[in-house]
Design a protein around this nucleic acid. Structure first.
Lengths: 212, 212
DNA sequence: GATTTTTTCTATAGGGTTATAGATTATTTT
DNA sequence: AAAATAATCTATAACCCTATAGAAAAAATC
């Protein structure tokens, strides 16, 4: 038996052999991605453990070698989808850049993530509330961290006199996230939508609004 | 037996007696609202026919007097939630009003609907894709009509020289809808959020953006 | 190549779910 | 109040689903 850390996400310490990753770790990622695919398509309750296993080419029962329960699978998918997204935000915010450039990068990062890890991100957004609160802890922390970075960026914009002093940064942060999420969902559903164009339009709308 | 029109939504012709509505029609609405509540809370697949029936105070089997299937219940909830919302939009767009006033009204209508019929609207937004395409026909039509009215309004704004001529009305329409939906979801989740304030902020952001 | 460890499989217990049928109780009509 | 219609109930068939246990196959180690 393997990975019986009993508590949680056990990406075994890098082993000695060639690729630094265990066979297990690699297959575990595949499991997470299979679950992401299934949950994204049918929703958490609509997808079955059989669907996930089939996606991986193994049998339903074997899936439990990788997840202790279906619920844990959902949790891991959500964290997987959200984690490096928040990390990217961290990198963006660390750099010293003028406000407009930063905003552009933030939106780019957000929408690009959707195009890449589309399934896991979608699952995080649409299905995470089906997790019991205990299991959402980490996600909540990540979300808060993300939003705070966004608010800080806006504050910097105010300080630099680039953006209006009378905006409610808290509110605007939520709005940007909401708009990007909704565009993200479109990007996932409609492959033909141009990513770069969408980014431009979003940034333009947020920055300048529609008025003349 | 009643309402065996076999095809669909049968809100019987107004009867003669007092209230113009049959007992059936009244209870059917209650059924739709119960389903909306259940689906909103647990999702389409997560909620059971038992949940819905319990909400109405009847037994699981009795529910099938009102819906031919769980899927049809979802369809009716979605249509119920979306229909009068689109109607309201129609009224707003019919009136001759300056662009900014109209935009304000549109956002008000959108967010107010959420606060009122929160469950059905939420279900429409989050769960409608679990319906097979055939059952989404009407919803799609309604959605298109809505978006078109919004785009028209934006076009009028361009014509009146109130808003920038270089905006992509199609894109902006989607963005507004996306942002409002995401705020709508917050309004449903957090009762303490001030409706009027949210409306103001949304309108302000869309109209003016954040830049100085 | 024998032994140990990892991975997958089969089978199943113990649930839960939808939808239907036919009986039963309420409510209207005549 | 008898007859007809509407609304609800009980019971159940026919599924589907998760999670576990123990056997079996594959891979790695000695």
């Amino acid at each position: 038996m393997r990975g019986m850390s009993n508590d949680d996400t056990q990406f075994d310490l890098p082993s000695e052999s060639g690729t630094t990753e265990t066979k297990y770790a690699r297959k575990k990622v595949a499991a997470i991605e299979a679950a992401a695919q299934a949950f994204a398509e049918k929703g958490f309750h609509g997808a079955t453990t059989h669907d996930i296993a089939a996606e991986m080419g193994i049998k339903q029962g074997s899936l439990y070698y990788y997840f202790k329960s279906k619920e844990q699978a959902l949790q891991e998918v959500c964290e997987y989808g959200f984690e490096n997204y928040v990390q990217q935000m961290e990198k963006i915010c660390a750099k010293a850049q003028p406000f407009e450039a930063k905003m552009q990068m933030i939106i780019t990062s957000h929408l690009t993530t959707y195009r890449q890890k589309n399934n896991a991100m979608k699952v995080h957004n649409d299905q995470r509330l089906y997790l019991p609160k205990e299991r959402r802890q980490r996600l909540k922390e990540l979300g808060t961290r993300y939003r705070q970075m966004l608010e800080n960026t806006l504050q910097e914009g105010v300080q630099a006199d680039t953006i209006r002093a009378d905006i409610d940064t808290h509110f605007v942060a939520y709005s940007i996230i909401g708009m990007c999420n909704s565009w993200g969902a479109y990007l996932v559903r409609d492959e033909s939508l141009d990513l770069f164009d969408t980014i431009q339009q979003c940034a333009d709308l947020v920055l300048r609004g529609v008025l003349n």
